[in-house]
Design a protein around this nucleic acid. Structure first.
Length: 224
DNA sequence: GCCCAGGGGGCTC
DNA sequence: GAGCCCCATGGG
């Protein structure tokens, strides 16, 4: 019942959008930096900031820690809240340096729950950011919840829309096979749907796959 | 000019 | 736990 519906939504989204190839990053370090910088900001601004960091040649834990705060602020200014985010980036780098000799892959190779707990202990890394890092950088099967997930699945009638982060995550985990590839693709597809003719701006868009899903009552996942 | 993006923390009640 | 404010850029 529920399990089929969560998978049906996935299938219909995948049929519509195709593979999303997430996370848009070349390295694990880039995933982590992007996950912090993307908080409450459009992704294009993150791309600008990452390009700035690469151009300045400070795109690794050691170099980034050596940049004076004022200079780091200017490099990541396009991502809003740049003073906070600069401190968060440095805190993360410091954890990797002090606990793992700067070995990022060793840091990410921890047992997933331990990694998540360690990430959550860093100020400025909450559940969504931590789970994004565990899923997309460490490639462990945790399901990432974001605001689109809350909005879309309550619109579909599968959830109430007022669940906590943990409760909604639990819904996905218990109704889907625990597969890192599926979790990776599903969250990316949810974001794609959220971006596509966004829910509040153009709810009547005839081509919106969300409305398509609603009209068909999620009953025919293979007919798209 | 106005709105809002791929959040999180701290505070209050 | 919910509600509110703070952080403070840039494109449509």
């Amino acid at each position: 019942m529920r399990e089929i519906r969560f998978l049906d939504v996935y299938k219909r989204l995948f049929n519509h959008f195709g593979p999303r190839h997430w996370w848009p990053a070349e390295t694990a370090f880039e995933v982590i930096v992007g996950a912090i910088l993307t908080q409450q900001v459009a992704w294009r601004n993150v791309e600008t900031a990452i390009a700035n960091l690469k151009r300045r040649n400070v795109f690794d834990p050691v170099s980034l820690l050596a940049v004076p705060d004022e200079e780091l602020w200017e490099l990541i200014r396009p991502t809003r809240f740049f003073r906070q985010k600069a401190a968060r980036l440095k805190d993360l780098c410091r954890v990797v340096m002090e606990g793992f000799d700067g070995d990022l892959s060793a840091f990410l190779a921890q047992e997933p729950n331990a990694l998540r707990t360690r990430l959550l202990a860093i100020r400025g890394i909450g559940k969504e950011t931590a789970d994004s890092i565990v899923l997309y950088a460490a490639k462990q099967p945790v399901f990432v919840i974001d605001s689109y997930t809350h909005r879309i699945f309550s619109r579909l009638g599968l959830t109430t829309g007022s669940e906590s982060y943990d409760a909604l995550q639990e819904q996905f985990v218990k109704n889907l096979p625990r597969d890192v590839g599926l979790f990776n693709e599903y969250h990316a597809l949810i974001v794609a749907l959220g971006h596509h003719i966004c829910l509040n701006r153009n709810p009547d868009c005839a081509r919106c796959p969300l409305n398509e899903l609603c009209r068909h009552g999620l009953s025919n996942p293979d007919a798209d």
